Amino acid sequence: MVEKRGFGLWMTHLGLIVGLLFVFFPIWLALVASTVTQADIMEPPMPLLPGDHFFENYRKALVSGINAPVAWMMVNSMVMALGIALGKIVISLLSAFAIVYFRFPGRRTFFWLIFLTLMLPVEVRIVPTYEVVAGFGMLNSYSGLIFPLIASATATFLFRQFFMTVPDELAEAARVDGATPMQFFRDILLPMSRTNIAALFVILFIYGWNQYLWPLLITTDPSMNTIVMGIKQMFPSGDDFADWPVIMATSILAMIPPVIVVVGMQRLFIRGLVDSEK
């Protein structure tokens, strides 16, 4: 590894700092806007330092909101994101395990049929999916938000590729010791897949948290709004009044759970992406 020293090292750090400032500045403006009054935002120049209405604005957003309390919308988003992430991982693990370790007719065909679903995103199949969900009476429900989105061809493919790198001797040794297929899956494959699971969990949690079109389609009850829907509905239409401090406070609150997940699982996430054995 070549280590940079002197002028090159300083320029590298300077470039990183400038890039970080460009990325962080809009977030800082949103944070400042969430701590001042409406008049401070509407009258230029906008302040660049936080104001003294932090607790007032965030309490108003969490408890009252504009269309619905932000605290409840965050609960809905959390349930949806966790349900999608965990559901995708469980189904993908089991399907990849069956495709790699069980011999049955059409095994390869079934895998490619699963893989071909990558060409059919939610937007393409949204009408028939909506009809199925409505037929089962799952509109305005957590099950309707989660179940249509938990199948994942990408995660199935990644787990299949990893399971194919596991030496066959492990499966043979487990069979000789009298382990059942599910015991082999639980005691050997799952611990070995820990970093892959962590990396996929971070990606899938953010995917579920940021969902907008599907919740917008199947929820009509304001109590089932997700945080992304809530932010969009807060923006004014026509001559309506926009409470910008509350909107900015809601935007900052919406960023907190994904940031916590990424920061809390960053080591496993990075190992799951760059580990040479994967």
Results as ranks from 00 to 15, higher is better:
Phe110Cys: 06
Val274Cys: 08
Gly208Trp: 04
Thr35Gly: 07
Ala151Cys: 06
Val132Asn: 01
Leu145Phe: 00
Val79Ile: 15
Asn140Arg: 00
Gly87Ala: 11
Leu31Gly: 09
Ser152Leu: 03
Thr154Tyr: 15
Asp221Lys: 01
Pro121Asp: 01
Leu94Glu: 07
Val124Trp: 00
Val259Gln: 10
Met1Asp: 09
Pro45Asn: 05
Gly137Ala: 13
Val23Asn: 02
Pro44Ile: 04
Gly65Cys: 08
Ile41Met: 03
Gly230Ala: 14
Arg175Glu: 15
Val133Cys: 00
Met11Asn: 00
Met80Pro: 03
Val36Ile: 15
Leu189Pro: 10
Met164Ala: 11
Ala173Gln: 13
Met78Gln: 07
Leu204Phe: 08
Leu170Asn: 03
Thr250Arg: 02
Val36Tyr: 09
Ile270Gln: 13
Met11Ile: 10
Pro148Val: 02
Ser64Val: 14
Phe185Glu: 00
Leu190His: 04
Met255Ile: 14
Ser223Ile: 12
Phe22Asn: 05
Met42Val: 06
Pro222Leu: 07
Trp244Ser: 12
Met248Gln: 13
Leu49Val: 14
Gly144Thr: 02
Gly51Val: 07
Leu31Cys: 11
Arg103Gln: 07
Ile218Gly: 01
Pro245Tyr: 03
Lys60Trp: 08
Glu172Pro: 03
Leu189His: 08
Arg267Phe: 01
Ser237Phe: 14
Ala179Val: 00
Val122Lys: 01
Asp240Thr: 10
Ile270Asn: 02
Ala98Cys: 08
Leu189Ile: 14
Met234Lys: 08
Leu204Asp: 10
Phe55Val: 10
Ala249Cys: 01
Phe157Trp: 13
Leu93Tyr: 03
Glu277Gly: 11
Ile99Cys: 06
Ile91Phe: 13
Phe55Cys: 00
Met119His: 00
Ser64Arg: 12
Ala85Glu: 08
